[in-house]
């Protein structure tokens, strides 16, 4: 007997068993492929299939819980593939002694818009992002900070400032966690918890996107 709450729609309940079944079949196919494959890169590509099977099984729950579990699964899969690709390439570099750069051609952002109006566009984006708040607002405000950092007229920001911003990003993440805790522990103060979570994740995402711009300036613009 399967215990199903009333809030779950009958459509989702009807396709629960086939979805889990398909997930298990796909996982078996992917694991079979991994077991007969010898090359590391091919195995890495095949882990994508197993990831798809995992996502099907999680999605079969069909509620908001599934949606909130899919997102970290995707991010973890992305980080894992990035890390393993780096490991494979550094191993190959050590073996052959040749090194191939990440970007095939040297990046040169020589666009006029980066010289004439960076501050104005950055300010507009940050204000609009603050108005939106949450994950979307963080992405937009982070795009503004990214644009500001990439622009050519602004030079020589002290590196302490960027380290401070990274610290603020961590504190904002704590705000986000506190917001969630408030939602669960004191449900009466749900508005406070919602606002803490929304603005915590806004500050965090915005500063993370800004840090990408700092890395970009330090790493890629070696001319």
């Amino acid at each position: 007997m399967i215990l199903v709450p009333d809030v779950v729609s009958p459509v989702v309940v009807a396709i629960y068993a086939p979805a889990v079944f398909v997930g298990i079949i796909v996982a078996l196919i992917g694991l079979f492929g991994i077991s007969i494959e010898k090359n590391d890169l091919q195995v890495l590509i095949l882990t994508d299939i197993v990831g798809v099977a995992m996502l099907i099984i999680v999605a079969a729950v069909g509620t908001d819980l599934a949606e909130s579990l899919v997102l970290p699964g995707l991010v973890v899969e992305l980080a894992e593939i990035l890390a393993i690709c780096e490991i494979l390439m550094s191993r190959e570099m050590r073996k052959t002694g040749k090194s191939v750069s990440l970007i095939p051609t040297p990046l040169n952002f020589d666009m006029e818009v980066l010289q004439t109006s960076p501050v104005f566009i950055a300010v507009i984006l940050v204000i609009y992002g603050a108005f939106l708040s949450g994950f979307t607002g963080g992405a937009i405000a982070g795009g503004g900070i990214l644009f500001y950092v990439m622009s050519l007229t602004v030079r020589g920001l002290p590196s302490d400032l960027w380290e401070g911003i990274a610290g603020a990003s961590g504190i904002a993440w704590c705000l986000w966690l506190t917001g969630f805790l408030v939602l669960f522990v004191f449900p009466n103060y749900w508005l406070l918890g919602l606002m803490l979570a929304a603005f915590g994740v806004f500050i965090k995402v915005a500063f993370k996107a800004g840090l990408i711009g700092v890395m970009n300036r330090e790493e890629f613009r070696k001319e």
């Binding site: 398909v22 196919i29 992917g30 492929g33 590509i45 299939i49 798809v52």
Partner: peptide, 13 residues
Amino acid sequence: CTLVIVGSLATVI
């Protein structure tokens, strides 16, 4: 479901 199964078979073999 069909696309997922056929696609994973196509990726493996």
